[in-house]
Amino acid sequence: MDYIDPHIHMVSRITDDYETLARMGCVAVSEPAFWAGFDRGSVDGFRDYFRQLTEVEPRRAATYGIQLYCWLCINAKEAENVSLSRDVIAMIPEFLDHPNVLGIGEIGLNKNTRNESIIFLEHLELAIKYNQSILIHTPHLEDKFQGTQMTLDMLCDDSRINRSRVLVDHVEEHTIGAVLDRGFWAGMTLYPVSKCTPERAADMVEIYGAERLMANSAGDWGPSKPTAVPDLIFELRRRGHNESLIRKLVYDNPIEFFSQSDNFRFQPRNVDHTVDHTVEAPKALPS
């Protein structure tokens, strides 16, 4: 089955991963800007990173027939540095017209601090000003519930936000309901230990349905598995779910959400439906 991974950090992965993803049916990915494992020291460091996301990585992906889109921001962890964050936010518009940029992300909270909240709100202003879709990171482990509620407060307090253009990512059992109930898209991240297993993600699909729901690997430089989405496909098939439901979750939904971004010009894989009319079909089955 062709599928799209809507959240993966390919700058942190080796080229072999692209080949593996392609062999598993991955036809497109979207890569949010994130924390590279160390704090960058200047706005130029981010400018170089955004060039990697908009110029270098799409070419690397295309080698394997994968279309790579991206999201730009300064992530929550580095948002503690308010001054640097404001410099980066001011620089982001340089890249928004690039043909593979889908919007602002992954913005959000990490430790749920005042500075993170301030920079989150300033990212929202940027997205509104430039009519961009938004991809949101929610915190890890014990911080997730509190941080998700705070994030939803900030989003819902702003009537200018179009909820159908916001994806709240890394939902788990205790946050998915609040995100979907408020009209946002929700993303389930399939991580070996710290987020969802394919089995628990399949449970959430069974409880909440596939409307406005996506699944991703969030593969990066830490413990993660870039082929986690096919693991979920396999689990859903094993439980006997329809192909149409699985396809909606891993293919149709990402396309529907991404299509709200002006730069999303996805080309489905070529399927040759040509019928050879030069060969006459048999009139009856052989006896």
């Binding site: 014990e142 788990e172 205790h174």
Partner: peptide, 9 residues
């Protein structure tokens, strides 16, 4: 169980 291991909001 998720809520048990969560900080309060």
């Amino acid at each position: 169980i998720q809520l048990l291991f969560s900080r309060k909001y």
